[in-house]
Design a protein around this nucleic acid. Sequence first.
DNA 1: GCCAACGTTGGC
DNA 2: GCCAACGTTGGC
Length: 135
Amino acid sequence: MPSYFLMKSEPDAFSWQQFEKDRVTRWDGVRNYQARNVMQAMRVGDEALFYHSNEGREIVGVMRVVREAYPDPTDETGKFVCVDMEIGKKFKRAVTLAEIKQHPKLQNLSLIKQSRLSVMPITVDEWKILCKLGS
DNA sequence: GCCAACGTTGGC
DNA sequence: GCCAACGTTGGC
């Protein structure tokens, strides 16, 4: 049984469009301990939703862990880690933050409760609901 | 170890 | 562009 996650990226820094060209990306630059701990729990084959923060504010597709946590080469302090993600299916329609906020079963998402957290676990139920909304 | 100052994220 | 929330830093 894979675990499920949600990861944010500002489209200005790294967008789904860019991801479609790269196919696999190093998810680096995370500088938050809580997010780091979440990334360290990720296993190859786990799945994650790709969320566009700031511009868009919507979930645009899914992706999969292809390399587990290793030291982030962009972090000179050596404290933080990154993972490698491979692009998966694009949502047929993006699921907006506004819509998530209105959904009664999605009120416990860290996306809402902890708006600054950029990498978070989600439950299998939340995963299913979000994927359905995106189909 | 406390806490004020400061920096960052991200929604609006 | 503003600002609330929250994480980090550094003086004491």
